[in-house]
Simulated assay, not measured.
Amino acid sequence: MITLRLISAALLFNARGELLMMKRSMKRTLSPGMWAAVGGHLESFEMARPRAACLREIEEETGIREDEIPGLRLQYILIRLKDQDIRQQFIYVGHTDVSPRIRTSEGDLHWIPRTEILNRELPFIFRYALEHYLSNGDTTHTWIGTAVPGSSGIPEVSWTALQDPEKT
């Protein structure tokens, strides 16, 4: 039976260009011990509102409020099949100079310098999103990334700009 997991996360950068990342607890179900963005699953009342879910997760995991993240915007939608799970992840990008105010049992939060971000153990689809963002930066459109089998047996992500075909 196919199930759907909807996840919303944020790439939060500070003025020094550091990314707020979480070293996930070993007790986490998805990607234990790996490095990830702040975020989590959408609750049933958030199914049509991934930005609201992202803001809720940011506040729950860091104590940082919406008004402290100017310009938070959707940059990526990632889709992958993992066993019988279709995982759809909404990744927002924003900037804040507010440091986390709370501790969470979900993992430890760290500001990671831009040059060290990709030196962490990352879930593969998140690594591809980070590599893409660090190469392309902010764009005026959202990117769709679909996980596909690579030619060498290593998974890859195929990127497409999300556009309204009736307005191009």
Rank of each mutant, 00 (worst) to 15 (best):
M21W: 01
L81V: 11
D108C: 02
S135R: 11
Y76K: 04
R51V: 06
N136E: 09
E116V: 09
R56T: 02
V93N: 04
G71S: 12
M22R: 06
L134H: 06
A15S: 14
A9V: 04
K27Q: 11
R51L: 13
L122Y: 07
S8V: 02
Q84R: 15
Y133T: 00
K82E: 14
L72R: 08
L122A: 02
L11I: 11
S44V: 10
W35M: 03
L72H: 08
T146G: 09
D164T: 13
M34N: 09
S152G: 07
S8G: 04
K23G: 02
C54H: 11
E61L: 01
T62W: 00
T29C: 10
S8T: 10
G33V: 00
E43P: 01
L55Q: 01
I79W: 15
I77R: 14
A15F: 08
I154S: 12
H110P: 04
I154P: 10
D83P: 13
I86Q: 14
P50C: 12
L12H: 02
E166D: 14
P70M: 03
T168F: 10
G107H: 05
G39I: 06
L6V: 08
M21E: 07
M22E: 02
F90R: 08
I91C: 07
F126C: 05
I144V: 09
I154Q: 15
A9L: 08
L130R: 06
E166I: 08
P70T: 07
E59K: 01
E121S: 14
A9T: 05
R5V: 15
R56I: 04
E166W: 12
A53N: 01
D108F: 02
D164E: 13
I2Q: 14
Q163C: 13
H141Y: 12
N119Q: 13
D85Q: 13
G137P: 04
P50H: 13
L134K: 03
L130A: 09
T62H: 04
T115M: 09
A53C: 07
T62G: 06
L6P: 08
E68P: 05
P100L: 07
H41F: 14
T139P: 00
I58K: 00
F13D: 04
L109W: 04
I112M: 00
I117R: 07
R28N: 11
V148S: 05
Y133F: 12
M34F: 09
W143P: 02
F13R: 03
A10H: 01
L42G: 05
I102Y: 03
A53G: 12
W143Q: 08
Q163M: 15
K27P: 03
L78N: 02
T115W: 07
G40V: 03
I2E: 15
G39L: 00
R65K: 12
I77C: 10
E106D: 03
W111V: 07
R114V: 10
T168D: 11
D97M: 01
T168Y: 10
L20I: 05
I58H: 04
R5E: 15
Q84P: 14
D97G: 02
G145Q: 01
E60N: 03
S151L: 10
P123I: 09
R49C: 10
E106Q: 06
E61M: 02
P70N: 09
Q88G: 12
R28T: 00
L19W: 00
E106G: 05
R24L: 09
T62S: 03
I154V: 15
R16H: 10
L78M: 11
N14G: 01
